[in-house]
Design a protein around this nucleic acid. Structure first.
Ligand code: ZN
Ligand code: ZN
Ligand code: ZN
Ligand code: ZN
Lengths: 137, 137
DNA sequence: CCTATAATGAAACACGGTCTCAATGAGAAC
DNA sequence: GTTCTCATTGAGACCGTGTTTCATTATAGG
């Protein structure tokens, strides 16, 4: 069975080439928070002649298809995350550590905003900033 | 009366020089979502000989003091925002436009997380991603 | 006023990301 | 299968952002 990202790419009319498949596989398997440089390194392990430009082009394609989304993760800089669904982080000012949490209370707000502003909402990001347990007292 | 940011800088033991004051004034007046390059351009209108390095050094200082915070705003890239309080955005995949909203339903969750994880929370970011009214149908 | 030292701007540098272009190869047409 | 076309590719030049270095300046305190 075909990977879901590959299917999205192909059914949008784009060719499914080996360089693209390598990038898709990396994004699909590690599924969280990689920088473009990390995607490049991992995908080159699958397809060694892969170039930087192709990685950026494939990422741009996936962003336009609404498959992935860039987020700015503290000291790590720009990272990629799946576009659908919610992502929830606690981020420490001091040490930059990122704690993920699952609870989410924005469902109702999401529906209300979508209706009022006629906005098709596909995902969200909720981040709290502060000082973690280790970094205060 | 002294601007609040200037006070924070001075009472933390740093000198309040004209180049710094220009950067503080820009961040304080426009109060939202400027990139460092935009801060540089605006602050140079106040203090023409201002150098890029000083802008970055001042921003770093303010981040360490917990006054501002970097966020990644879609196509605009890294922008600065006040560290305290909440920021709420609707961001369009297609055109990159950013709509701000005021409603916020994360107060309780914030308190619960702060208590359970012993995390001092000082601000938050809530972003919904999707397709805006103009960009669908 | 003088001094110690924090802060500065210029310039070199590092790096991420984009663009250009010639070469390639996937897929359609037959 | 062969041929054709055009999307896709990698190399490398390029650009803007952010960092570092260093000699010079200017602040704040004595
Ligand atoms: Zn959520
Ligand atoms: Zn911490
Ligand atoms: Zn809020
Ligand atoms: Zn839009």
């Amino acid at each position: 069975m075909m990977q879901p990202m590959a299917k999205r790419v192909q059914s949008a009319g784009f060719k499914l080439t080996p360089p693209r498949q390598a990038v898709l596989q990396v994004l699909e398997e590690s599924r969280e928070h990689l920088t473009p440089a990390e995607v490049l390194a991992r995908a080159q392990a699958i397809y060694p002649s892969l170039g930087r430009a192709t990685v950026y082009r494939t990422i741009e394609l996936l962003i336009n298809l609404g498959v992935v989304r860039p987020i700015f993760l503290g000291a790590r800089g720009m990272c990629l995350t799946l576009a659908e669904g919610g992502h929830h982080h606690l981020i420490c000012f001091e040490c930059g550590s990122v704690i993920e949490f699952e609870e989410c209370t924005v469902g109702e707000l999401e529906q209300e905003l979508a209706q009022r502003l006629n906005f098709q909402i596909r995902g969200h990001l909720l981040e709290f900033y502060g000082v973690c347990e280790r970094c205060h007292d």
